[in-house]
């Protein structure tokens, strides 16, 4: 009996701990961003200026990568950067409209591997970290970009 009680107590404590953490964290969110929508993520990270830096850093590394660099042969860095910035800007609530070609169309017949997609994701993650975005901002941006996976690989 006592073991049962103790177990329940420990379980409750563990769950309470996690919930209070989650609660504490989301509490912060609501006070911090109470009146803000997802548009705030764009503003919060410093808008297009930051996105330009992030993708500038990422693209320099991507173009040099021995595995995925070749996909961008003949694509000017500035063009790709502009596309990625406007696309991400739109996805995270910025005042942009992506006017480039559809992802499905631009990646058609490239037969991009999943492994190659992950390499690119890690460059973008790395660039966000190096530019000074917080882990939370990085996750939120990745959440918006993640579905692109299925608009790029094995087409």
């Amino acid at each position: 009996m006592s073991s049962h009680l103790q177990k329940i107590r420990i379980t409750t404590a563990a769950i309470a701990l996690l919930l209070s953490m989650l609660g504490g964290i989301s509490g912060c969110t609501s006070t911090q961003t109470a009146s803000q929508t997802s548009a705030s993520l764009y503003d919060e990270i410093g808008g297009s200026k930051t996105l330009n830096t992030v993708f500038g850093v990422a693209i320099n590394r991507i173009y040099k990568d021995p595995v995925i660099g070749h996909y961008f042969n003949g694509v000017p860095k500035s063009h790709l950067r502009k596309q990625l910035v406007s696309q991400t800007c739109e996805l995270i609530g910025g005042p942009c409209v992506y006017e480039g070609k559809a992802m499905l169309e631009t990646h058609k017949d490239l037969n991009i591997k999943e492994r190659e997609f992950y390499i690119l994701v890690e460059y973008v993650q790395g660039a966000m970290r190096d530019v000074g975005l917080t882990y939370q901002q990085e996750n939120q941006i990745l959440q918006k970009l993640a579905p692109i996976k299925y608009e790029t690989i094995y087409l």
């Binding site: 964290i25 912060c28 917080t134 996750n139 939120q140 941006i141 990745l142 993640a146």
Partner: peptide, 11 residues
């Protein structure tokens, strides 16, 4: 995995 789900943390 819910990315950026709880104040930006992955859950």
């Amino acid at each position: 995995l819910y990315l950026g789900h709880i104040n930006g943390f992955n859950l």
